[in-house]
Design a protein around this nucleic acid. Structure first.
Lengths: 241, 241
DNA sequence: AAGCACACGTGAATC
DNA sequence: TGATTCACGTGTGCT
């Protein structure tokens, strides 16, 4: 649709000037068909005042309802603007919404990973060494090493020996158990850098060494577990570490 | 501002009909001042065609730019609609934005709590027992008990004895250490319900008992720590559990 | 019919 | 200036 303006009148916002709105009333029928055909100029008004007033009221209602709707939406937009809080509060709607989208995705991803970290895989054993993004200053990287398998007391001995032998700088260690399963997590740092920049290769090779060592521990444990299951004393007590 | 319609013309979207838009051209001056004063009816056009064409093009550009803007915003809105994914995709913009807001707040709160759970308070000891919202079916509640203090080997003995004595149904246990500090977390269930409904009071009293017991363990540990610090052998080895 | 929600084109402001 | 953003009133479809 294309519609054209007949005249534009400056007035004080939402006034009740009937004359100015006469031409809009075609749209609201039911007040006598002749009005629909008479041109704006020929019509002098007089007996249709009631009808026009009603139509005007409807129009006013409509625009005010629309204004309320806009305010509702813009209010929520303002809340979101405060919520994403990317320093500068001057941002157009589209950009704001884009930022909201990326924020929601980011938060969801983090939540997913966090819940995954909290879980203990029940069926599969695993050894994992991966970079861990805590900030420890320049020249340092940190890694998170995970080993998850069936619980066996002696694996703690092996683990301790292995970690001691590697002389890792342990930042944090965590052990959780769930039913017959256990999961050990170590966070360690690698400060192999020179001139305040990380020597990435040296750190990676340390990571690989740790991965290999944990792999050996796991392998030994699962072998010992198999052996235990095939002997006639499956519940035989083992020496604590 | 209030403006009135002269006539409304049905046409195919965005066409180039100059006549219909003549009346809109006041707004775009610079094509000869006389046009601004002549009425739409008196004016016959002819020598201002070039000017009018330019104005029309500007107007068309404007409306198309606005259309693109709307599409950009609505596109993001659609993405968000898919992201909150509250089953029913029929939702007005305001409601959608409200849901996005609550979702973001929820996710942020969870992230905060998760990071808090992962932290070990370094300065203050603490004992905490609080409901833990994992679903275990009807008639069961679960709790998370936390005890955090300086690391002492014998506290593990005390803890084990205490938990055994309480005969808790342990679901998960977790111990983390950071420098000289340790944190132990236990998740246990309380299935005291009758007729598939939880006996909340019974569970709460169990929670209180656990809290009290852990408090005693912590108290004993800190007393023993103080004793160790005041003796002449602060680094004296203690028997492992 | 009467209310609501949306898309549209426009006027004004800002850069 | 031209481009871009916003608020506004309106037309229209749905319920």
């Amino acid at each position: 649709m294309v519609y054209t303006f007949c005249e534009r009148v400056s007035s004080s916002g939402y006034d009740d000037d009937l004359e100015l709105l006469n031409d809009s009333l075609h749209e609201f029928g039911g007040c006598g068909g002749s009005v629909l055909l008479s041109s704006p100029i020929e019509r002098v008004g007089g007996k249709n005042e009631n009808c026009e007033a009603k139509a005007l009221a409807a129009l006013k209602n409509h625009s005010e309802a629309e204004r309320r709707r806009r305010e509702r939406i813009n209010g929520h937009l303002a809340t979101l603007r405060g919520l994403v809080a990317s320093a500068h509060q001057k941002m157009d709607k589209a950009t704001l919404l884009a930022k909201v989208i990326s924020q929601v995705k980011e938060l969801k991803k983090n939540a997913m990973e966090a819940s995954k970290d909290f879980l203990i895989p029940m069926e599969t054993d695993e050894v994992k060494v991966e970079p861990y993004d805590i900030k420890l200053g320049y020249g340092c990287m940190s890694y998170m090493a995970t080993i998850c398998c069936d619980y066996q007391p002696e694996i703690l001995c092996d683990l301790k020996k292995t970690l001691d032998a590697l002389q890792l700088q342990l930042v944090k260690s965590e052990m959780s158990t769930l039913e017959r399963r256990m999961k050990n997590v170590f966070v360690f740092t690698c400060c192999k850098g020179v001139n305040n920049s990380v020597d990435v290769e040296a750190c990676q090779s340390i990571g690989n060494v740790v991965h290999k060592a944990l792999g050996s521990v796991l392998e030994k444990a699962s072998m010992s577990m198999e052996f235990a299951l095939t002997t006639s004393y499956p519940n035989k007590r083992r020496r604590m570490c």
